[in-house]
């Protein structure tokens, strides 16, 4: 919001202060003030505390696609776990100690040689946040939401993902109560990989279904 001022400061000061100090001295914009006002009023009414908001910020920061990647890697290496995960997404994740801070169900969609799954939220931006963190901006914008359900093959091609014509594409439209995670196909040539090595291959976009997972040697070649 104040990027120009921010850069200016960096050019003319020693780096002996942290960024919080800079932002705290910047005059806030209209929505900064609206947000702060809502928070303070709810605080005064004892409906929401600042401590709760700060705690939730920590929770949000703790959820990244690396968490989802560990689930995928486990499913690739442990067939029993995979069956459980496909049968009960949320319960199986919770059994690993992953808390679902919101009241949402989770369905894990398995990609196969004949089916490729793609996740969208046409109405807004619902996303498996407890497992992947916050969604990317493009996931929340109209082009992705509008096109995913009507021309997924063309949309995927724009991600560089070419799905052969004989592979069915299934598009799952999320709701506020039900979220989806794609279990991608395990790449060929990874039989000797450890679970940790496998997890390192799994990207956020692969768990949304817009790209496939590639082994390390394929990535270099690409």
């Amino acid at each position: 919001m104040h990027e120009q001022d921010h850069d200016h400061d960096h050019d003319h000061h020693d780096h002996d202060h942290d960024h919080a100090e800079i932002s705290a001295t910047e005059r806030p914009g209209y929505f900064d003030i609206l947000q702060a006002a809502l928070e303070e009023l709810l605080n005064e009414r004892k409906l929401v505390t600042t401590a709760e908001i700060e705690r939730q910020i920590d929770v949000l920061d703790s959820r990244t696609p690396a968490l989802g990647a560990t689930i995928v890697a486990r499913a690739w290496t442990d067939p029993d776990f995979r069956q459980q995960l496909l049968a009960d997404g949320r319960g199986t994740c919770e059994s690993l100690g992953i808390t679902f801070y919101d009241d949402t169900g989770l369905i894990v969609l398995e990609n196969t040689e004949t089916v490729h799954n793609l996740v969208v939220c046409t109405l807004c931006s619902c996303y498996p946040r407890p497992l992947l963190g916050l969604p990317p901006e493009w996931y929340k914008l109209k082009p992705y939401r509008a096109r995913a359900v009507i021309e997924p093959r063309a949309l995927l091609a724009e991600f560089g993902t070419i799905i052969p014509d004989d592979v069915e594409i299934r598009v799952a439209d999320s709701t506020s109560a039900l979220r989806f995670l794609v279990l991608p196909l395990r790449p060929k040539g990874t039989d000797d990989y450890t679970e940790e090595q496998l997890a390192a291959l799994v990207t956020r976009d692969a768990m949304i279904g817009v790209v496939t997972v590639k082994a390390n040697d394929e990535r270099v070649a690409a």
């Binding site: 493009w138 109209k142 992705y144 939401r145 509008a146 096109r147 995913a148 359900v149």
Partner: peptide, 8 residues
């Protein structure tokens, strides 16, 4: 969903 849309 399914509407004409700006470029992705």
């Amino acid at each position: 969903g399914g509407q004409a849309s700006p470029a992705f």
